[in-house]
């Protein structure tokens, strides 16, 4: 009398234990099996499609992508892969109408709760990973939102790359926050007028589409 590892060992009502006999037509049972196989293929297609991948893997991904996209199962699960790397932050300088300036950065430790901190962190990480037109567009979005949040007239943004400290540095008396571990890239300066105009234009475009 064998038993399954985790499946219910106790007595199951017989009508429950016989999917094909009650309520399930043969066609239904076959469809259920086909869906199970299809879903399993869909589940593996997303991680398989992460580069480097073969034509077969990419073909599978293309076939499955509508299904996995709708269900948001389109994730590669390559956590901390291939290597844990340093991280990106967005630094900003906001200038106000009265001449004041405010310097800040996200993510920062004042953002609470931790889940919200991670949201900001992912924004800056995404920005760091993007290039070209997409990055420019995202920078403008960030600048616009920061101006709106603080009521600023002008925003200057920088991308700050924080390289990881090696173990030898710590042993030699260094720290994770040594100045030479930071690399700052200017992203541009934007005025609220310009940003709000482009925003209105975009909204109008969006509506028209």
């Amino acid at each position: 009398m064998t038993s399954d590892m985790t499946a219910t060992p106790p007595v199951a009502p017989v009508d429950e234990a016989r999917p094909r006999r009650r309520g399930w037509s043969l066609a239904g049972f076959v469809l259920l099996n086909l869906w199970i196989v299809f879903h399993l293929l869909a589940v593996v297609s997303a991680p398989l499609s992460v580069s480097p991948s073969s034509n077969v893997e990419r073909g599978l991904w293309m076939a499955m992508s509508p299904y996995v996209q709708i269900l948001y199962q389109n994730n590669g699960f390559h956590f901390f892969a291939p290597n844990p790397e340093g991280s990106n932050s967005v630094r900003y300088v906001l200038e106000f109408e009265d001449g004041r300036t405010l310097e800040g950065k996200f993510p920062n430790r004042d953002i609470w709760p931790r889940l919200l901190y991670h949201r900001y962190f992912m924004l800056s990480e995404t920005l760091g990973a993007l290039g070209g037109e997409a990055r420019e567009r995202m920078v403008r979005d960030f600048a616009r939102q920061l101006c709106r949040d603080y009521g600023a007239e002008r925003a200057t943004l920088f991308l700050e790359w924080h390289e990881l400290a090696r173990r030898e540095r710590i042993l030699a008396g260094g720290s994770l926050y040594d100045d030479d571990l930071y690399q700052v890239t200017p992203l541009g300066t934007f005025t609220w007028d310009e940003l709000s105009k482009s925003s209105n234009a975009n909204v109008a475009t969006t509506s028209a589409e």
Partner: peptide
């Protein structure tokens, strides 16, 4: 996915994860 990264082979990956100040 991690097997593509050399730090997971040379054993420094965990340190790098823990040394990420952010």
């Amino acid at each position: 996915g991690k097997l593509f990264g050399e730090t997971w082979w040379d054993g420094t990956a965990m340190w790098r994860g823990l040394a990420n100040a952010e």
